[in-house]
Amino acid sequence: MPGEVRVVDRPESESSYIRAISKGLGITFKHFMHADKPTQQYPDEKWELGPRWRGTHRMAVHEDGRAKCVGCGLCPTVCPVNCIKLIPAEDENGERYAAVYEIDEFRCIFCGFCQEVCPVEAIHLGVHYENAEYSRERWVYDLARLCENDHPVTALWDPADPSSE
């Protein structure tokens, strides 16, 4: 029904052509001359990540290079997306270690529960995000790769203010 067309009665200053066009050109010209652009030249300039950034995992190691993991099985249990695969084993001294420890970074939601639950502070999330790969298999990080990662670990809470977690 044509009677329901809503007619907005605009003042001439709003519906004029020349003024609107010159104003628009003025605005674009102002931006054109504006040298300060927010663009970050990414591969050349990188982000400054916060200390609580949760990214690629890393495994803490002992001084002799062994992983700190004792294979207790808490992290695969707490993991909400089931992305950690752990097969524990025991050596001749009776010390438990992780025979297989793999994290699928595709499945991981970077919640940080594994780091929080770890009794020996072995597995950590890291302040790191550049993990592009050429194949899907490369996204499953084995223990050796986790130990090799050397980016800073995530601070899950501010050490100066622990109650604010």
Binding site: P2, G3, E4, V5, R6, V7, V8, D9, R10, S15
Partner: peptide, 18 residues
Amino acid sequence: TARTRAVPGVTAATASEG
């Protein structure tokens, strides 16, 4: 605005009642 007003029987007044 002007185009809508040109439709016979539809004035700005009746149109705004809708």
